[in-house]
Amino acid sequence: MNKKVISIIVPCYNEEEMIPLFYDEINKISQTMDTVLFEFIFVNDGSKDGTLKKFKELANKDTRVKYYSFSRNFGKEAALYAGLVHAQGDYVAVMDVDLQDPPELLPEMYRLIREDGYDCIGTRRKDRAGEPVIRSFFARGFYKLINRISDTEIIDGARDFRLMSRQMVDAILSMTEYNRFSKGIFSWVGFETKYLEFENKERVAGQTTWSFWSLFKYSLDGIVAFSEVPLALASIVGFLTFGVALVLALFFAIRTLLFGNATSGWTSMVVIVLALGGIQLLSLGIIGNYLGKTFLETKRRPIYILKESSESNIFDKKGAEKNE
């Protein structure tokens, strides 16, 4: 009987230090799982350091290693999608190279997906130990907010690290949207998923490229991608503001008729005008964000462009023709 194949997708951006450490760990795990075959798919997201060189070194010594290198930095979401496009395994795992996703969970994930009939085994952190307090506060707030305003449930603490069936991967690949938010996509496609919990781990080496600002922008992408509530909220706020304006107009008119001295309300009027202007700009910003995402979708640009890879003479339908 032919052995099943597990594809491990590892997106990387400036991870020269971590790649050998990650490979050693995942290689140890693969040797304990002798009932399956592995392919390791490393995606270079336009790194400026020696990441690509490390990929080539691994590919030369291990035929299971494949690498795909972008023409520039397209973002982690594009790297994940590229890995899914090229994965050939019966099961596909997504992992971060920083070893904050414990490779030792992989055997149990494979056992559960094979024996218990799950389509996906995901992972989530039990806590956020070691994470900056402010980042943890906003992260928890984001999950509470998006689960209130979206029909798609996103598990608090869920990692991208998961093992998926081929059927689920194909469903994800059918979603070719340019603005991608994988945590939402994984949940939106459905399929039966079980989560394994683990203790939060620090990076073994190197530094994260995810700043607070980049995480904030990423959270906004998630909200725009999976909820229309902000648009409705802008309309509701506008309607309520209009109602308050009518009440205030009536109040000031009556006060002037009864007490005169209309100019005494100049300060309050300035405050009201500034408040209305702020609400209008906020509403326009919300609408503009949705409009901007729609504009990018209508351009139908490729999600990523490949510059080179471990394979040659292959045309990538989602990217560009690879160098020969």
Rank of each mutant, 00 (worst) to 15 (best):
G89W: 00
F315S: 12
D90G: 06
F137D: 09
D34E: 08
A79E: 05
S7T: 07
S235R: 13
K54T: 01
F161M: 07
S71F: 04
L163K: 01
R125H: 05
R255H: 14
R135V: 03
E197W: 10
I6G: 04
F161R: 00
I149G: 00
P132I: 02
S283R: 09
A253P: 01
D101Q: 04
D45K: 02
S182F: 11
F212Y: 13
E25F: 03
K4L: 15
S312M: 13
Y304P: 00
F42E: 02
A275P: 04
V204I: 15
V92A: 04
L257P: 02
N289D: 13
G243W: 08
T241R: 12
F198L: 02
D96N: 13
A79Q: 04
E202V: 08
I172V: 14
K66N: 13
S283K: 09
E131Y: 14
F181T: 01
Q100E: 14
D34H: 04
Y178A: 08
I223K: 02
L163S: 00
E153Y: 12
F212E: 01
E228N: 13
W266P: 02
L291K: 10
S174Y: 11
F142W: 07
Q280D: 06
I9A: 03
T123C: 08
V85N: 11
P102G: 00
S71D: 11
Y23A: 03
F74P: 01
L105V: 09
K3H: 10
A275R: 01
E321H: 11
L248R: 05
N2S: 15
I134Q: 15
L220E: 02
L220T: 01
Q88L: 10
G46M: 02
V92C: 07
L145T: 07
I19T: 00
I154K: 03
T63H: 10
F191P: 01
S7Q: 08
L258N: 15
G288I: 06
M95I: 10
V133S: 14
S268D: 05
G265F: 11
P102D: 06
S268W: 09
K194F: 00
T123V: 00
I19P: 01
I287Y: 07
F315M: 12
G243L: 12
S69Y: 05
N147K: 06
F295P: 00
F259M: 10
E297R: 08
T35M: 09
D151M: 03
M168S: 05
F161K: 01
T32Q: 10
E324W: 12
E177W: 08
G130Q: 06
K76R: 13
P102H: 07
M18S: 15
A253Y: 12
I41T: 03
G285K: 12
F137I: 15
S136E: 14
L246Q: 12
V133F: 15
P107M: 06
Y218R: 08
I8D: 05
N27I: 09
S264E: 13
Y91R: 06
A82P: 03
L258C: 15
F198S: 01
G206V: 09
S235I: 06
I9D: 01
M164I: 05
F70Q: 02
A253N: 13
I254S: 14
Y195C: 07
T256N: 12
Q88G: 07
E115S: 06
R64F: 06
L282I: 09
K201E: 04
M109E: 12
M33T: 03
M175W: 08
I172S: 00
K4R: 14
K201Q: 10
I305T: 11
D49M: 08
E17P: 02
P107H: 06
L233Q: 04
Y195T: 09
K53F: 06
